[in-house]
Design a protein around this nucleic acid. Structure first.
Length: 804
RNA sequence: GCCGGUGUGGCGGAAUUGGCAGACGCAAGGGACUUAAAAUCCCUCGGUGGCAACAUCGUACCGGUUCGACCCCGGUCACCGGCACCA
């Protein structure tokens, strides 16, 4: 067999594709469009690892197939390059982040090109370029104009090591997402984006898109919509309302105390009324010193302080109710205060037990001596609700009562919080706002965008959580765009999620200087037809970008309400040791090495063949060799080519079956079985010893999306006209996928006794008769009486017997 | 704690969604070619018993439904992912 020189061949075809602009999308085309999107990488100094290759290979195959199917395909790539790792590297080495970013992008680009991905390289974007972040700032200003970007003083998650304020998303588990130190709570004036205003739209929109079910579910849980009621309790001796949110207003008669978050504003307002303010202050101090993690830890041992001289009145029965403060109630959810029903809420129960508060049962069915009962049951001790047994009815009845008496109303709450939108760092988009002593916060005029990052020598953040930009007087000091007086610029920058929240729109028209993208082009290309990425981005990036997009939709800037028609996710590639790949474990596989030793086609086919695309699978060096053999054997087909322009009778049905199988599997992310089917066909071809021109043409077209270099080469060696990437995706004939004769299993009482060949269109009677003709079956039927006979078409015969 | 997912040979994984368990690939063993090695090609490859045809057990565990269960139902265990004092 002729030796396949993968190095020269892969380079040759990559150069040809590049020269011919083979994969550039057309903005004007009669063809149907297909927009395939993969999550653009963060260009880290470590370079890419094979996980990136797997992430892109999925839609790479789909894109190449679509082109052969006659689509105008947009399959772009870019770089999400603002962010802390680059900045930290710059601090360590003194090299400017701009330079670091350019170096890293260059490295990533060369790696990606070596794999032969069919990206449209004319549309590459970099979120850190001025003509990109100009538009990120533009969208921010639109949000500011519409009241969706605002500043608020609140407790924030603060990382003392990185010296930045973090969003809840970036501080999960009480650890900084970047450096993993403990987060502390700090009061600070920060920027927020009012994503909660879009909570319902984000939830509603999920009904109209084709996302994997678990992706939808994670988004739903993240948004965390709950329905219930707001109830106004009156603070004893005042007109003040202490407002609470509850999902179970029907348990109002079981309220025995109330709890406010330690930061609740009513505490300060009525500090004169509260007799034990010393104790209260001490407790508040104790809470603020807890890290975010400690605070959210589920602790059995509840802490809190009773407010002396401050109580409330239960609006349904006029009972006076003690009020406590405790950190198990959060200021950030609901109203920051709750009505406590210890009989039917485990947290309230624990608190009541510790503080010796009454526990009143209002729902029958549990044992409130032991624990809170949260199930359904008959309402008791509840006046007009007594006797109701259905939770829905009792909630409705109470809600109606509250409404009628003006004591409260139905309400909805979300777990999702507004998005803390700022970093006190250099390497991010400057927030284009000016603080004027007279006019307040003023937007930088649109025609002054981009607001550029100033040149800086020292990227170290300030010790007080201030951005390095605050130290640059020439940047900070400016004139107010409104009144012309002296003013100061905002020095915070945007978080890393900003640039990636709209990048898919910029690919559509990457060089536009008048708008983030032209309306006509947006209309043609949107929505993204298929978006693939990692599960880890499902609750942050995916929600953020849907939010930005829906905002732009409401402004009339984009044409359809949802950005992504379909979303899938690939599984991780684990290290050969089965652990998650990480630099510290030293189990990272570099795609460059694989391409050097085996070639791009081998790398591409292996990452798709190694297992279920959606599941994690460990890398195996030796299994890669199997794909190497596969690619070499594909090239070897040139040696056994015959002159025939038809399918041979022996392979005809196999060819049709393979086309069907591969066509279908690509659409359902079953790349592993698609490749397996092609390996099977390849084995059949070698068993037969020859391949016709018609068979070769079909076969290498099927293979082309997976292994484009070797198939393009075989196409040329075989002397087919033009180039493989310009041919058509093969079709199949359903009727030819059926064999004339099929192997039928014969069972007696469900146990296989024999296998016989029968015509595929045989009748049930004939099949059963043929089955009985088998010697082995006859032996098993000896001395038995037949109870039942079944024939499953094309599969099996089952004869049910019992002793005669 | 709550929500979701997974569990199949020595390994990665298939199984037309209730119909021949183990496709395809890796590893392993045997053989051919070679002075030799690599590469390549051929054969074997879930367990047990048997020279063999064959028998028998086998999809985490226990039970159920069915002519028939990796697949459906009930329960248990283990691992992975997400959320987590959300009122």
């Amino acid at each position: 067999m002729a030796q396949y020189d993968f190095k020269a061949t892969e380079k040759k075809w990559q150069d040809i594709w590049d020269k011919n602009k083979t994969f550039e999308a057309q903005d004007n085309s009669d063809k149907p469009k297909f927009y395939a999107l993969v999550e653009f990488p963060y260009p880290s100094g470590a370079g890419m690892h094979v996980g990136h290759i797997k992430a892109y290979s999925g839609l790479e195959v789909v894109s190449r197939k679509r082109r052969l199917q006659g689509y105008n395909v947009l399959f772009p790539i870019g770089f999400d390059a603002f962010g802390l790792p680059t900045e930290n590297y710059a601090i360590k080495t003194g090299i400017h982040p701009r330079k670091v970013t350019d170096m890293n992008i260059e490295k990533f680009t060369s790696q990606l090109r070596r794999v032969g991905f069919s990206f449209d390289w004319s549309r590459v974007i970099d979120t850190t370029e001025e003509d990109y972040y100009k538009w990120t700032q533009w969208i921010f200003l639109k949000m500011f104009e519409n009241g969706l970007a605002f500043r608020d003083k609140t407790l924030v998650n603060y990382c003392p090591s990185c010296k930045v304020v973090l969003s809840n998303e970036d501080s999960q588990g009480g650890k900084c997402d970047i450096c993993h130190s403990d987060i502390v709570q700090k009061s600070k004036d920060v920027w927020y984006l009012r994503i909660t205003e879009y909570a319902d739209k984000l939830l509603e929109g999920l009904k109209d898109v084709d996302y994997l079910p678990n992706i939808k579910l994670q988004q739903e849980n993240w948004i965390g919509r709950s329905t219930g009621a707001f109830v106004n309790f009156t603070v004893t001796g005042t007109d003040e309302k202490l407002r609470i949110y509850t999902t179970r207003p029907d348990t109002l008669f079981g309220v025995t105390f109330m709890v406010m978050a330690p930061e609740h504003p009513l505490i300060d307002k009525y500090s004169g009324k509260i007799a034990n303010m010393d104790e209260v202050e001490k407790y508040r101090d104790f809470c603020s010193k807890k890290s975010a993690f400690e605070r959210t830890q589920l602790v059995k041992d509840k802490t809190g302080v009773k407010l002396d001289g401050f109580s409330a009145v239960n609006p349904v029965n006029g009972k006076e109710i003690p009020v406590y403060i405790s950190d198990y109630v959060m200021m950030g959810y609901g109203t920051g205060a709750i009505m406590a029903v210890p009989a039917h809420d485990q947290r309230d129960y624990e608190f009541a037990k510790k503080f010796g508060i009454d526990i009143i049962e209002v729902i029958k069915g549990g044992d409130i001596e032991k624990e809170a009962y949260t199930g359904d049951g008959e309402m008791v001790n509840s006046s007009f609700l007594n006797g109701l047994t259905n939770k829905k009815d009792s909630i409705e009845k109470m809600a109606a009562y509250l409404q009628e008496k003006g004591l409260g109303e139905k309400g909805v709450q979300y777990k999702m919080n507004d998005w803390a939108f700022n970093r006190q760092r250099y390497w991010g988009e400057p927030i284009p706002i000016v603080h004027c002593p007279h006019c307040g916060m003023v937007a930088v005029p649109y025609d002054e965008l981009p607001l550029r990052l100033p040149p800086v020598e020292n990227f170290e953040p300030g010790t007080d959580g201030e951005s390095p930009l605050a130290k640059i007087d020439s940047f900070v000091n400016c004139k107010c765009p409104k009144c012309g007086g002296d003013a100061r610029r905002e020095t915070d920058t945007m978080p890393q999620w900003a640039g990636s929240s709209w990048y898919f729109l910029r690919y559509i028209d990457p060089h536009n200087t008048e708008a983030f993208a032209g309306k006509d082009k947006l209309k043609y290309w949107m929505p993204v037809d298929w978006y693939n990425g990692g599960m880890e981005h499902v609750t942050r990036h995916l929600i953020y970008s849907r939010f930005w997009y829906k905002f732009l939709y409401d402004l009339g800037e984009v044409p359809v309400p949802e950005p992504y028609a379909k979303r899938t996710a690939q599984g991780l590639i684990l290290g050969p040791d089965g652990d998650k790949m990480s630099k510290s474990k030293g189990n990272v596989v570099d795609p460059n090495e694989v391409v050097d030793i085996y070639g791009a086609d081998v790398l591409r086919s292996y990452v798709l063949f190694m297992g279920d695309y959606e599941k994690a699978a460990p890398w195996s060096e030796s299994a890669v060799k199997g794909c190497k053999r596969f690619v070499d054997r594909i090239y070897g087909l040139c040696d056994i080519l015959t002159d025939s322009d038809e399918y041979s009778p022996e392979l005809e049905s196999s060819m049709h079956k393979a086309v069907k199988k591969v066509s279908e599997d690509i659409e359902t992310l079953k790349y592993n079985t698609a490749i397996a089917a092609m390996m099977t066909l390849l084995n059949q071809i070698y068993d037969k010893g020859s391949i016709t021109r018609a068979e070769l043409r079909t076969f290498i077209t099927l293979l082309n999306p997976f292994v484009p270099h070797v198939t393009e080469e075989v196409w040329q060696v075989a002397g087919f006209e033009g180039m493989l990437n310009q041919t058509q995706w093969p079709s199949y004939d359903e009727s030819k996928c059926v064999d004339d004769e099929v192997e039928i299993a014969v069972q007696v009482n469900g146990k296989i006794k024999d296998k016989i060949m029968l015509p595929s269109d045989i009748s049930a009677e004939d099949a059963i008769a043929a089955a009985k003709g088998s010697e082995k079956v006859a032996a098993a039927l000896e001395g038995m009486s037949i109870v039942k006979e079944l024939y499953v078409k094309g599969r099996l015969v089952n004869i049910v017997v019992k002793p005669a």
